[in-house]
Design a binder for these strands. Structure first.
Lengths: 147, 147
DNA sequence: GGATATATTCAACCCCGCTTAACTAATCAA
DNA sequence: TTGATTAGTTAAGCGGGGTTGAATATATCC
């Protein structure tokens, strides 16, 4: 079997396990925070992709601006995001995570990566170093393919 | 900095990127298939954890049995799962993916791992081998920690 | 056999997030 | 300046998926 074929197979298996566990953790996170999929998507978008306006949120979520506006509004009332007028174009709003929103998302990421960290406890130092190198490679490659 | 500290950091970063992209892909998959988070959870449970009854589905989803029953019913009508009487205990039903449901989930997994496969194209053979080893280690470790 | 427990479904109701449509306000352009 | 366009909000209504509680059928226990 060619190495590329093996790599594909390995990636598939890992992705499946990762998605399965992370999906469960994500669901739990939704329940704990009482936030919907869309609401968390908005928060992660702001965390990851920087600030943006309401329409961009709607585009990303694949919903109408009205729906995006409502979602944003709920998050503002929860104190998780800030909605200020854009000084450059006073029709538009600039959205940003509040401190509270930011730490909430970081808690989520932390929770969802904790189980992987548990996996590495039993590994030798050499194996850990290999994983560091491998994930670093993947992370860098992913960063390069912008969006 | 200790290697464990670095490893934790590397895992966090990789998880964050992975979750972000996969989350987006998952959302797209939900839209394309017109299936809800819960419905896909049920399908993945059946794909992953083997067949089960309605109550177990409910437990896993964290909803009442009535809700689980309804979710199952919708999926049966969509032809994605099969609901047959359990011959051992005729009060219970045994749920299983149909061929259609199975290929649908596999399509989903494939779609969600494809972007990672794209990342590895530009890597040397040596780097690819390292990633194979690393992900294999992680996958095996994950399999060992049952559930 | 009769009482009780278990697995699932049915029925009625509720809430949330989406859509469409109408509206406000700011900007652009002739 | 005024008409068209763009960003966002608001209101009304719908549907999906949840809940509780009763109903049904089978299992289990004495």
């Amino acid at each position: 079997m060619s190495p590329t074929k093996v790599l594909t197979e390995v990636i598939r298996e890992w992705s499946e396990i990762f998605m399965h566990r992370s999906g469960r953790d994500f669901k739990r996170f939704m329940d704990e925070t009482s936030l919907s999929f869309s609401q968390l998507s908005v928060l992660m978008r702001l965390k990851h992709g920087g600030n943006s306006g309401v329409s961009e949120i709607g585009d990303q979520l694949g919903v109408t601006n009205a729906a995006a506006s409502q979602a944003v509004d709920r998050l503002v009332h929860l104190g998780l995001i800030e909605r200020t007028e854009d000084p450059e174009d006073r029709r538009a709003k600039r959205l940003a995570l509040t401190q509270k929103g930011n730490t909430l998302i970081e808690k989520g990421v932390e929770a969802r990566s904790k189980w992987i960290e548990g996996l590495t406890d039993a590994l030798t130092l050499e194996q850990q170093n290999m994983i560091i190198s491998a994930l670093t490679l993947l992370t860098e490659a992913a960063r390069k393919t912008k969006e």
